[in-house]
């Protein structure tokens, strides 16, 4: 059985791209629902990115305790994720989710 997928754009900047094959923009296609049949939200996306997109073994540089590491900003369609419901935001096709690290030096 093929489950429906949802296509979104992700971007990793501020040094985070170093953890994602040194590439900033990734178009990803992920299941439209999580294991419990709930619509895919940011929590699910983060978990999915960790398992399927991130090749770097240092997962804790991106995710801590199931959420993005404190110090990493998340922008949902160019707005702070705090304004959009944070982890609970339900992904829509074509969304742009940007992860920006504030933790990397210059």
């Amino acid at each position: 059985m093929t489950s429906p997928t949802i296509e979104i754009k992700t971007e990793f900047t501020g040094g985070l791209e170093l953890l994602f094959s040194n590439q900033r923009k990734h178009k990803v296609s992920l299941p439209a629902t999580d294991l419990n049949g709930q619509p895919a939200n940011i929590t699910f996306l983060i978990q999915w990115l960790c398992e399927h997109l991130m090749k770097d073994p240092r997962k804790d540089m991106f995710v801590l305790e199931g959420s993005v590491r404190p110090g990493i900003l998340v922008l949902i369609n160019d707005a702070d994720w705090e304004l959009e419901g944070e982890e609970k935001y339900e992904l829509q096709a074509g969304d742009e989710i940007v992860f920006v690290s504030t933790l990397h030096g210059g």
């Binding site: 900047t13 501020g14 540089m61 920006v100 690290s101 933790l103 030096g105 210059g106």
Partner: peptide
């Protein structure tokens, strides 16, 4: 970081501090 992001400034990042 948001200022740099929204003004589209390009900057260089090193490995995680």
């Amino acid at each position: 970081v948001l200022y740099a992001h929204h003004k589209k400034l390009d900057y260089f990042s090193t490995e995680c501090i």
